[in-house]
Design a protein around this nucleic acid. Structure first.
Length: 398
DNA sequence: GGGTTGCATGTCGCA
DNA sequence: GCGACATGCAACCCG
């Protein structure tokens, strides 16, 4: 899709070096992914929806460090972002839709001095941190693919709500057993923590305000432990949040930033509905989630694969083919107990008609009829109600 | 005694 | 071979 249909240009770090997707060859995709890291890719979801184009703006982060400082100083905590329908949203999605790579870290610079931090770094000088050089562009590009944010449209939309905020996906992490355990400590990938969270020089760290996708705010202690001449970054106090989200080992938490507010937003993805979690297969996922044809293709979730026979095959916990391939995924060797065998997968097949049957118009809403390419569609302002058919079955005891 | 905290250690992926 | 990370575990805290 990237190669053939997505009209975009990416300007890498405003250098004027742009990349035109149609000219990309497959072997270039991996290289291209790096451009996504080093450059700042913005996708206006609204453009995708309204114009059928992925309106990607190749521009470096629009905010200057000084504006970030202003935003930080003017930060209003606890802003709730109510959900609003896509058509009403002015949100700009910056960075990844599904499988793009994180935008570069903000220009972290001087150390944080406040008692609470919302994730906006108020620094100016971006090179020295804790006595060590900050992660440079190359370092950022070396963020392990398993931590690249892979947000679906829905996830991004849920985060952005109806605000005018730009969502900058930062990173994500699959919860380990200890992360999801009762200890309440979430181990953060070092590079991600250093790139996207405020700099800390003391092991005690600092409190970090994080908003979840429902608007609820949590305060975690962002800190580190000395570890083999290095550091191990953790978020402490995550148990209530994890319990609230009903997360468990194998689920994925996502971190993104709302700009210009600078709020850190934490989302999650349940393992049973995780989408492109084949995190070793980056190239196949680049561009996944960027549609040029409007709503009908806006569900870029690999869950819904429509084959020619008109069936939707939903493969829970990824496609069959990818399960076997994921030897080195996050669920791989380090989390053997989480590995899910092929036979544990659930496959749901239903026809389009059956799928339609699951959708109910919201009550008290009269649709407007829209004709698109000769087909008439009922258009509703609100999302449909998802119904569940009754399934009758008998077992060996009747 | 149970829970929490801080650090140590083993494993494994990556350079 | 090194570094990151998952987890074990001892010391500490508190009811």
């Amino acid at each position: 899709e990237l190669q053939t249909r997505m009209p975009y240009e990416v300007d890498r770090l405003n250098t004027g070096e742009t990349f035109s997707a149609p000219s990309l060859e497959k072997r270039k995709v991996e290289d291209f992914s790096e451009k996504f890291i080093n450059g700042n890719l913005r996708i206006r979801l609204r453009d995708i929806v309204e114009n059928g184009n992925a309106g990607i703006i190749g521009e470096e982060q629009s905010q200057t460090p000084s504006s970030l400082m202003e935003d930080a100083s003017a930060q209003q905590f606890g802003i709730s972002i109510p959900y609003k329908s896509l058509s009403e949203s002015n949100s700009q999605i910056e960075g990844s839709v599904n499988a793009l790579q994180p935008a570069p870290p903000p220009p972290f610079t001087k150390h944080f001095h406040g008692s609470l931090h919302n994730g906006v770094d108020s620094s100016v000088d971006g090179h020295i941190r804790n006595g060590k050089p900050r992660t440079d562009a190359r370092g950022r590009s070396q963020l392990l693919p398993r931590y690249w944010p892979r947000f679906t449209d829905g996830e991004l939309h849920q985060i952005s709500g109806n605000s005018n905020s730009v969502i900058k996906p930062l990173f994500e992490k699959m919860l380990s057993a200890s992360d999801a355990g009762r200890i309440g400590r979430l181990v953060l990938p070092k590079k991600c923590a250093e790139a996207y969270f405020p700099p800390i020089s003391q092991p005690e760290g600092l409190p970090l305000r994080v908003q979840d996708s429902t608007g609820k705010e949590w305060i975690f202690q962002f800190r580190f432990w000395p570890n083999n001449n290095s550091r191990m970054y953790v978020l402490e106090g995550v148990t209530p949040c994890i319990q609230n989200m009903q997360l468990q080992a194998g689920d994925t938490v996502t971190f993104s930033r709302l700009e210009p507010e600078g709020k850190l937003v934490m989302g999650f993805r349940k393992a049973t509905s995780a989408t492109p979690s084949d995190q070793d297969n980056e190239t196949s996922q680049i561009g996944n989630g960027v549609s040029t044809k409007g709503d009908a293709e806006l569900d870029h979730s690999p869950w819904s694969k429509v084959d020619k026979s008109g069936y939707i095959a939903k493969e829970v916990l990824e496609g069959k083919s990818s399960i076997r391939k994921r030897k080195s995924s996050t669920l791989g060797s380090k989390s053997k107990r989480l590995r899910i065998e092929k036979e544990d997968m659930i496959e749901l097949k239903l026809t389009w008609e059956e799928a339609q049957g699951l959708l109910r118009p919201p009550p008290d809403h009269v649709p407007s009829i829209v004709a698109i390419e000769g087909f008439e569609f009922e258009e509703y302002e609100d999302a449909p109600v998802l119904g569940k058919p009754t399934i009758f079955a008998t077992d060996n005891v009747g």
